[in-house]
Nucleic acid binder design. Structure first.
Length: 771
DNA sequence: TGGGAAGTCTTTTTT
DNA sequence: AGACTTCCCA
């Protein structure tokens, strides 16, 4: 009966079998963590536990779906379909809809996505008469998000000294007011943003102990995947839910925590043992994915991090080839070399294109590799960038749906009130918004209720245009009652003229927009038919609920099978490839170092974990690549290799791959740099090896010359003394308070009048002496 | 009101 | 470089 346990190693089996009480499963990279979670649930089900009492939380829809499929394969579709399995957001959105009476919100609330939130914040900043160069909507929005993730409500925000002080230090003392207003307007629009879904769940539990008690006894078993990526709000929900039975099982790897920038708390996993003293720890340390070389190399890097949970990941696979370093002179050549290696290996060793992945730190880095791959006719697919559901044309049509479900949804209304154009301009919209905020009503209420203000404010022509719009929306709302999602979608697309509009646009972008619209309609049709077949609701509201929490990576396209994968390291998490290229391995591409700031210890360790994640994606072989020079934002930039390369135990790194005078062998890559820079710009795409050698020789010659002249960067820094008035490109005027360190690592503490105190690395800082 | 010129800014990303 | 916003003028 339990023969599936044969498929597990000892550590995995123990973790599966201990179903009662708190369990912490520390799962190293490639150690079969999904398998353990899956089997654990199967094991519970086989013992006769009812599936509806099991709650399993993941971070992505994809992870949830895959796990559900695997479970269904072992215990049958029927049983698996009763499991409460999904992302934090989708599960608790569902709960908030069910418990809507207690929250005072309708069940068909809208979910604002990141763009909607940001737009709303932008509007509020304008309404407050604040300068949006100082109050950047993105920053304010992320401050609000940050507060919500830490369960700071709009009412309590102003009392929190840590938030208040920080807001002051970034010159935005009024964020707390913006937060309050933002919250108010979300309520009027009957909308939750992503963070609200977690915050409101917490408030629901806090204010309604009876409801909490009901869910506590409903879910006998709670499992959490990727626990190292949970934020405080998520942590607290879990803690509350399992407070009675404490049947909690969390799986994670602190070494792969790479989402601190969006509120993930690595402490959650580090402190699990204190939170649940009666816990048991399971360590999954055998890596089934990568060669010994890769596992050992990755271990040698991560060992530099101070805070981590004890574990010793090992591999029993073959030793495998060493990690190779590609040292290119320019970014163009870097792409050229990577593409060359892919083409060669694919031919020689019969690799498939899908065996390769090119991983980079930022999406913008993909271009150079696209070009190189295209030139060599290598098929590739790119992840990232704008997702399908964030495209304008898609959001426009979905905005009509949102209006049908919840006409108070102001952000949706703003999107479509004049799309397609019906003569309602910015002036009219601003007035409407003004009326809406003054009366604390949604724009929809304002235009449908009429009222005196409405009459006096607008002339007859404008009023009739608005009436046409509201009649249109009302007609759709009426039709929605007896139409499925697909039928309604088609009606809307046709009757509003959106479809015709897109069809008539014959530009390349227009064509792709039209295609996207077709794709959306297909997706809705598919949703409707499968919903009907499976006996689920197929209305527009149900579709929206599904789509609001969906992402692009959820729909893999056909024909993407045998292609090289290009993606950021972040999105590669959870995936694996035979050969991995980690490209752009330069110090310069570390975000903050670029601006001349220092990374904090925590940030630096997170960068290292990012590198760890990248390394452990590979089964067979890792290539690292860096370039001497690259273009960024249209300007030439001179690069140094990432310090993390040096942290790899040299036993696992192929030595001397790049010739004599390469980055790694330069004694001090910093020295002489500015001289070297100014005089030698290499062509972006060196083609022949002889040409390359030529440039290499020239570059080396220059380097030697400038060395002989005794030119050093430190001389340049001599004027930067305490008291000096300097101007920073971004922070403006400031005064140097303190200078410390030995050249070239000279660190200066500068007080900027507009930006507060900063620590800058002088050799990077865009700083100029004023006086 | 809309189009073109000029200015601004630039991490990572899930929900 | 490229996406995005803002400004200004017809």
């Amino acid at each position: 009966m339990f023969d599936y346990l044969e498929n597990l190693n000892d550590a995995q089996r123990e973790a599966v079998l201990r179903t009662e009480g708190p369990s912490l499963i520390i799962a190293g990279a490639g150690s079969g963590k999904t398998r353990v979670l899956t089997y654990r649930m199967v094991h519970l089900l086989k013992q006769g536990i009812r599936p509806s009492t099991i709650l399993a939380l993941t971070f992505t829809n994809k992870a949830a779906r895959e796990m559900k499929e695997r479970i269904a394969g072992m215990v049958g579709q029927q049983l698996a379909s009763w499991l409460w399995m999904g992302t934090f957001h989708s599960i608790f959105a569902r709960m908030l809809r069910i418990e809507h009476e207690a929250t005072g919100y309708p069940a068909d609330f809208t979910i604002y996505d990141a763009a909607d939130s940001k737009n709303l914040v932008r509007t509020i900043i304008k309404d407050f008469g604040l300068d949006d160069k100082v109050y950047k909507p993105g920053t304010v929005s992320s401050r609000i998000s940050n507060a919500k993730n830490n369960l700071i409500t709009p009412g309590s925000y102003a009392q929190k000294p840590e938030f208040r002080d920080y807001d002051r230090s970034i010159q935005m003392p009024r964020i707390s007011e913006i937060y309050k207003e933002y919250h108010k307007r979300c309520r009027i629009a009957k909308a939750y943003d992503f963070d609200d879904l977690l915050l409101e769940t917490n408030l629901l539990f806090r204010d309604h102990p009876d409801i909490l008690a009901r869910y506590q006894s409903k879910f006998d078993y709670v499992l959490v995947d990727e626990y190292q990526d949970t934020n405080y709000a998520q942590y607290l929900i879990i803690r509350n839910l399992v407070a009675n039975h404490r049947n909690i099982c969390v799986v994670g790897d602190d070494a792969q925590s790479i989402y601190a920038f969006r509120g993930a708390r690595i402490e959650n996993i580090l402190n699990f043992q204190d939170d649940y003293p009666d816990h048991k720890v399971f360590r999954l340390e055998q890596n089934y994915r990568s060669t010994q070389t890769i596992v050992n190399a990755a271990n040698s890097v991560i060992a530099h991090n101070k805070r981590q949970l004890r574990k010793a990941v090992f591999s029993e696979k073959e030793t495998g080839p060493k990690i190779r370093l590609i040292e290119a002179l320019t970014d163009g050549e870097e792409g050229f070399q990577v593409a060359g290696i892919i083409a060669e290996t694919q031919l020689r060793d019969h690799y498939r294109f899908s065996d390769f992945a090119i991983l980079y730190r930022t999406n913008a880095q993909s271009r150079i590799f696209e070009e190189a791959l295209r030139k060599k006719n290598i098929p590739y697919k790119i992840y990232g960038g704008l997702s399908f559901y964030q495209r304008k044309e898609i959001k426009d049509l979905l905005a009509y749906f949102r209006m049908v479900v919840n006409p108070d949804d102001n952000e949706a209304l703003k999107r479509i009130i004049n799309y397609p154009p019906r003569g309602i301009g910015q002036t009219t919209l601003s007035k409407l918004e003004q009326l809406s905020t003054d009366n604390e009503k949604s724009v929809w209420e304002v235009i449908t209720a009429g009222g005196d203000h409405f009459q006096t404010e607008f002339n007859a022509g404008t009023r009739s245009k608005i009436a046409v719009f509201s009649a249109l929306v009302n007609r759709f709302r009426e039709q929605a009652k007896d139409m499925g999602a697909f039928e309604l979608a088609r009606t809307i697309a046709a009757e509003t003229g959106i479809l015709k509009d897109l069809y008539n646009d014959k530009s390349p972008e227009g064509l792709s927009r039209y295609k996207n619209m077709e794709e959306l309609l297909n997706a809705i049709q598919e949703f409707t038919t499968s919903a009907i077949e499976e006996g689920r609701e197929s209305g527009i509201g149900d579709y929206l609920q599904e789509v609001a929490l969906l992402t692009d990576q959820d729909n893999e396209k056909e024909g993407d099978r045998d292609k090289v994968t290009l993606m950021t390291v972040h999105s590669a998490k959870g995936l694996e490839f035979r050969t991995v290229f980690i490209v752009g391995m330069e110090k310069n591409l570390f975000p903050s170092v670029q601006a001349g700031d220092f990374l904090s210890q925590e940030e630096y360790e997170e960068e290292r974990r990012l590198f760890y994640v990248a390394l452990t994606r590979a089964q067979q072989q890792v290539f690292l690549s860096c370039a001497d020079q690259r273009y960024r934002w249209g300007k030439l930039e001179y690069c140094q290799p990432s310090p993390f390369i040096r942290e790899i135990d040299p036993r696992f790194l192929e030595q001397g791959t790049g010739g004599k005078n390469t980055f790694m062998q330069r004694q001090d890559p910093i020295q002489n740099y500015s001289r070297f820079r100014a005089e030698q710009e290499l062509p972006r795409n060196p083609v022949s090896p002889s040409l390359r050698t030529n440039f290499q020789r020239k570059a080396d010659q220059l380097k030697t010359e400038s060395q002989e002249e005794g030119y050093a960067v430190s001389e340049d820094l001599s004027g930067y003394l305490p008291g000096t008035v300097v101007e920073h490109q971004r922070f403006g005027l400031g005064k140097i308070l303190k200078v410390e360190g030995v050249a070239p690592d000279v660190k200066a503490t500068v007080f900027f009048h507009n930006a507060g105190q900063k620590q800058l690395l002088l050799r990077f800082a865009r700083l100029r002496i004023v006086k």
